[in-house]
Each structure stands twice: as structure tokens, then as C-alpha cells.
Simulated assay, not measured.
Amino acid sequence: MELPADQRGHPSGGPHLVLHSEALRLLGDHLFGPYALHRLELGTWSGNERAVRAFTRRGFREEGRRRAVMPVEGERSDRVLLGMLREEWASRGRAKGASAGVPVGASAG
């Protein structure tokens, strides 16, 4: 899920961060539930510490960095890569319908 450029690293955090957090929860419930995906991954730039904290609070783990690949305000920043496995989401009580199987036409990742 890629956020529009005008919402990436929004300086106020505030309501944007709450909405993104709720959207992330709903997306995880949907993708790990009915679609039975194995993992989710996302990324942000290293200067977006609020996003990194929010994703980490949701259970995502930092899996790596791509150094100096993102131009931000005239400088190069790292891209922080985070991921979560289905089992980790389920252990947090988030995988609704996890045993429902994969819908027809969907892949289990």
C-alpha cells in the first residue's frame, strides 16, 4: 500500500497517523483473513520515525534498509523495510477468519 506523496511522512502525525493505523489494521485483517496471505511488507524513509514507530507498534519488524535510495528534501535517505508474518498477526489476535481458507481465485502467497 503506497500512500500518496502529499501524505507520506506528514509532519503533524495526529489524525493522519490514526487513520493510517486503523487502515493498516483493517488491511491486515483482510489480507491475513479471507485472502490467507503469508506475509505483508511495507517501507518508508528513514526520517519518518513516527511511521516506523507506528508500524513497529502494530507488530511489524524491521527487516532491512536500502541505503541512500530515497531523495528527500534534496538529500538521500535510507528506505526502511518492515514485514510481518501471518503467524505474528494471528498471535496479536488480528487474523479474523484465519482458518476460513483461501477464496476461489486467490493465492495463498
Rank of each mutant, 00 (worst) to 15 (best):
G74S: 08
G105Q: 03
R94Q: 14
R8P: 00
M1E: 09
H16E: 05
E88K: 06
G33Y: 06
R53E: 13
G43P: 00
A100R: 15
L37P: 00
R67F: 00
A100G: 15
W45L: 00
M1Y: 03
T56C: 08
R53S: 13
R67Y: 02
Q7W: 07
N48S: 03
E87A: 15
L17A: 15
R65G: 11
A95D: 14
P15H: 12
A51K: 03
A36T: 04
R66L: 15
V18I: 09
E22H: 11
F32E: 07
V102T: 15
L17W: 02
P103A: 14
A108I: 02
V102W: 01
S99R: 12
G59V: 06
E88Y: 08
W89V: 13
N48T: 03
S77Y: 14
L81Y: 01
H38P: 00
E49Q: 13
A36L: 07
A90V: 14
P11N: 08
S99I: 00
G101I: 09
N48H: 10
A5D: 05
S77I: 00
L42Q: 02
E49I: 10
V69M: 13
S99E: 13
L85V: 11
M1I: 06
F60S: 08
S107K: 12
V104I: 08
G93I: 10
G13D: 02
P71T: 14
K96D: 01
A68E: 15
G105P: 04
D78F: 02
L31C: 06
F32K: 03
L24H: 08
E88M: 07
G47N: 06
P15G: 09
G64L: 04
H10M: 01
E41H: 12
G33F: 08
R66W: 10
P71Q: 15
K96N: 00
K96W: 03
D29H: 06
A95C: 15
L37N: 03
G14F: 04
G101V: 07
G105L: 11
P71A: 15
G109V: 06
R79V: 00
S91F: 02
V52L: 04
H30V: 02
L81D: 07
L3W: 11
P11K: 11
R65W: 05
A108C: 07
S107Y: 09
E62G: 00
A36R: 14
A108T: 09
E49A: 14
P11R: 11
R79G: 03
R25I: 08
A90D: 15
R61S: 14
W45R: 04
E2F: 01
G47H: 09
S21P: 02
Q7L: 13
L37H: 15
A5R: 05
S21D: 12
G74A: 09
A98Y: 03
P15Y: 10
R94G: 15
L27V: 09
A68V: 04
A106H: 08
N48V: 06
E41S: 08
V102A: 11
L40P: 01
W45Y: 14
M70H: 10
V104L: 14
S99D: 12
T56P: 05
G59Q: 04
V102M: 02
L42P: 01
A95R: 11
R76T: 07
S12Q: 14
L82H: 07
W45E: 07
W89F: 10
V69W: 11
G59E: 05
V102H: 05
F32L: 06
E73Y: 11
R86W: 13
L37C: 10
R61F: 01
E62D: 00
F60V: 10
S107P: 07
G59T: 07
S107N: 08
